[in-house]
């Protein structure tokens, strides 16, 4: 099938939000290096962060092949209003409970998205998503084990995980903020759309939450954290980008 200009525009929008999510969550996860509650978790978060950043690079590379700028330029020179990440990923790492729950909610969403996109008619994306699926399997496995262990650990850990869930769950809905391209991308069999992702996600994370003896948070305003996809961000993103680009910006034309 021939891609129209509108399809290309929609695809780029999809790729940017995916890559930006991955870059920013990877950056946040990497902040646990040296700070984890046990060494093994330090290592696990670092490992997942490397996967995320590697995945974001692969998607920026696809964008580059579609005529966008080099991955380094795209990642290290834009300001917050040009980023399309969700408001979930830009939140500070907080304590381990929040980071763990965010990782759980986020990775289920990505696993579902990658799974769907593995069948996309847009070959370059389908190919990388097939590869990512293999990596994601371990991320969701890691999340499942820890959510369950801490939910069943003791009173304090259960309360902490539930509270973190109450905080992060409404934010996670911002991952599925509908896009104006959803319908056309779905009709063209490029991507089945955010609504479908969200339905599967609610079912899958809901199962894990209930099995762990936790409650699925009730969300009064599902759109509270929307806006990231069109460049509306919390106060946390720009400082993150300032830090991330600090050295690169000393001389963006230099080889580092």
């Amino acid at each position: 099938m021939e891609l129209t200009e509108r399809h290309v525009e929609g695809l780029k929008h999809l790729l940017y939000k995916m890559a930006d999510d991955l870059l920013i969550i990877g950056h946040r996860n990497s902040e646990w290096t040296g700070m984890g509650p046990i060494l093994e978790e330090d290592i696990a978060f670092s490992s997942m962060a490397q996967d995320k950043i590697g995945q974001s690079l692969a998607i920026y590379n696809i964008l580059h092949e579609m005529g966008e700028q080099e991955p380094d330029t795209v990642a290290f020179t834009r300001n917050a209003s040009s980023f399309h990440c969700s408001q979930l990923v830009e939140q500070p790492i907080g304590e381990y409970d929040f980071s763990l729950v965010r990782h759980f909610l986020y990775d289920y969403a990505d696993a579902i998205r990658f799974d769907m996109l593995s069948n996309s008619i847009f070959e370059p994306l389908a190919m990388v998503c097939k590869k990512f699926r293999g990596e994601l399997k371990y991320h969701t496995m890691h999340a499942n084990i820890w959510i369950k262990d801490l939910a069943e650990g003791n009173e304090e850990s259960k309360t902490r995980i539930q509270n973190a869930l109450n905080k992060a769950y409404p934010m996670a809905l911002s991952l599925f903020e509908p896009s104006e391209f959803d319908k056309e991308l779905s009709e063209a069999e490029i991507f089945s759309g955010e609504a479908k992702c969200r339905t599967i996600w609610e079912k899958e994370v809901g199962t894990v939450i209930l099995e762990a003896g936790l409650e699925i948070p009730q969300v009064s305003d599902p759109e509270e954290y929307y806006g990231g996809r069109s460049g509306k961000h919390t106060e946390h993103l720009q400082p993150l980008l300032d830090e991330m680009t600090e050295v690169f910006q000393i001389d963006p034309t230099a080889d580092w």
């Binding site: 040296g34 060494l39 290592i43 962060a49 490397q50 950043i53 590697g54 690079l57 380094d72 991330m244």
Partner: peptide, 26 residues
Amino acid sequence: WITRAPGFRRKLALMAKVQDEVGHAQ
């Protein structure tokens, strides 16, 4: 410096390197 590393290549390499060091501690 992981969060400040200039460019993907350095960022990925430094993350892996520091992760190795924590792995050595383990």
